[in-house]
Amino acid sequence: MIPAAWERRHVLSLRDFTVAELDIVLQTAHSFQEVLSRRTKKVPTLQARVVANLFFESSTRTRNSFELAAKRLSADILNFAPGTSALTKGETILDTAKTFWAMGAEFMVIRHQQSGVPQTIAAEMDRLGGHVGVLNAGDGCHEHPSQALLDLFTLCQGFGSDRPRSESLKGKKVAIVGDIRHSRVARSNLYSLKAAGADVHLAAPPTLLPKEFDCYGATRHWQVEPALEKANIVMTLRLQRERMDQHLIPSLREYHQQFGLTRDRLKQCHPEVKVLHPGPVNRGVEISSDLMDDPHFSLINQQVASGVAIRMALLYLMGNYHTGPLT
């Protein structure tokens, strides 16, 4: 079904992903999207194999998307809820992970509010000598690989041929607007979009766009207009107030006035511009409600739909690494 060039047990970051690896994920997701369009949406690819969803941080889209992806692959699923777990009795995160390992989990999907937790768990699984694949579902302000891959998939479908390839974004201007400082989505998207050859521009108030982002190879703007000028793609990001430990913006109203995406602002972009948002959306803050719901511009619903196919692809590829070609 898929080229046998996949060599990753874990998917923790997109920082060192090659174009070839990005395209393997995109083409695998495309195959699974065809499966999801059938009346019978299930395949036996991971039958009787165990996927553990360890979400130490709340989530709607990512958690449910991974669970549905695992079910569509016929896997057995173990779901973890920190509020009713032994963590409340003093158990460590690593001991929790080892408990799931002892139960036979072969895949661990990890989401945590602290950066580095998925990497720590992956290192521990490797030390134990098992064949557990760890997938980072978002860690602190670090990365969110599967979200960036589904964003890439959504965009390549919009700009490419029937079979999405990352090269379809080469030379396209992408504006990422919002709370970039705290965004793991922005970091992962920067890696994948730059690898695909896109021209990436970042726009946010200075407090939400520190100088450290110069090293990502993107152009920084402290006003939104230069970033939007003739942009082919605009991605708005949520203000992550739960991660802010100080007042970084004067008010939500002022933020919307200066950086909120509206129909008037969109006139500066390319006429066929597409708009994305990883969710959850603060309507009337990052983006106006009417623009968010306009199918001519907005790809937000397509992003959600793409999530299941991308996460099926990642679980499939990681399973392929462990056992050889899957049927």
Rank of each mutant, 00 (worst) to 15 (best):
Q302C: 08
I93N: 01
D290K: 11
L314V: 09
I310C: 04
W6N: 09
A69N: 10
H142M: 02
P206N: 10
E91R: 06
I176M: 10
L36F: 00
T62Q: 05
A20S: 15
N301S: 12
M318E: 04
I287L: 13
S166C: 10
T219M: 00
T120E: 15
A70L: 13
Q246P: 04
D293Y: 11
Q257E: 15
Q47N: 06
P164G: 08
L12N: 00
V35W: 04
H10S: 05
E21V: 03
V275I: 15
V51S: 03
N136K: 04
A52T: 06
D126A: 15
N64R: 01
H296Q: 08
L135F: 08
C269R: 05
A195R: 04
E143Y: 03
L94E: 10
K170Q: 03
D199T: 00
T236P: 09
A186C: 12
Q246M: 12
S298C: 12
D179L: 11
M103T: 08
V50N: 14
G197T: 05
G307Y: 10
S13T: 07
N53Q: 01
A4I: 00
L135V: 12
L291S: 10
V19T: 04
H322Q: 15
I180G: 05
M108Y: 11
P206I: 04
F56E: 00
R187P: 05
A204Y: 08
D245A: 11
T45W: 07
K89C: 11
S37G: 15
G104K: 07
L78D: 11
V304H: 01
S37D: 14
P226L: 11
L78C: 12
R220K: 14
G160D: 05
V200F: 13
S251Y: 14
Q27W: 09
E67R: 09
L149D: 09
R283V: 01
L291H: 03
L87Y: 00
S115D: 08
A97S: 05
Q47D: 13
R8W: 02
G319E: 04
P206D: 09
E106L: 07
H10M: 05
R63K: 07
K42L: 12
Q268P: 02
V109Y: 03
V11I: 06
N64H: 00
R311E: 08
L209N: 04
